[in-house]
């Protein structure tokens, strides 16, 4: 799928979201309604205009549309999953433990660090976090399972 088609799909998604937001805004009290309602209506209109203009441009254009590199998209999705997985891990086991697990696994698998380098890097991060946490009074998410280490 070309970038241009994806852009139209994204604009259509925005159009739907803006319409829903305008519909929701209509349920607010008058003084709370006017700003989000008119902004959402204006944005939905603009999104519609943008969809039409982009479609016309694609139809008129004779040149080949740019195709995204599928391999790169797979890589993007892979690293998005790494990030989402890290956040999910934090939700279940808490920040410190999740960070240790994430760094150990990521540095070994993706960064291709040696085991000793991985362990040392992870330990350094944990020490740094504890140090900064104490100095700057930072807080960590505790996690659903209530496991707490280094806290």
């Amino acid at each position: 799928m070309s970038k241009e088609i994806k852009s139209i799909l994204f604009t259509t998604f925005l159009f739907i979201v803006f319409c829903l937001m305008a519909f929701e805004a209509n349920t607010f009290a008058d003084k709370a309604k006017f700003f989000p309602f008119f902004v959402a209506i204006g944005a939905a209109f603009l999104a519609f205009v943008s969809i039409v203009l982009q479609t016309i441009e694609i139809v008129r254009s004779n040149k080949e549309n740019s195709i995204d590199d599928v391999g790169e998209i797979k890589k993007v999705l892979k690293y998005v999953l790494w990030a989402v997985g890290y956040i999910a891990l934090i939700y279940f086991i808490g920040f410190m433990l999740a960070t240790i697990v994430f760094l150990l696994v990521f540095l070994l698998i993706e960064s291709k660090f040696r085991i000793i380098t991985t362990v040392l890097s992870t330990a350094l991060v944990v020490v740094g976090l504890m140090l900064f946490g104490n100095v700057l009074n930072l807080y960590w998410p505790t996690g659903l399972l209530g496991i707490s280490i280094f806290s």
Partner: peptide, 22 residues
């Protein structure tokens, strides 16, 4: 690959300080 994992940890900490809510 050697830089981003550490950056992600820092950004996660930074994000959580805003309202300290998941």
């Amino acid at each position: 690959t050697s830089l981003v994992p550490f950056l992600l940890v820092i950004l996660t900490v930074a994000s959580y300080q805003s309202s300290r809510h998941f």
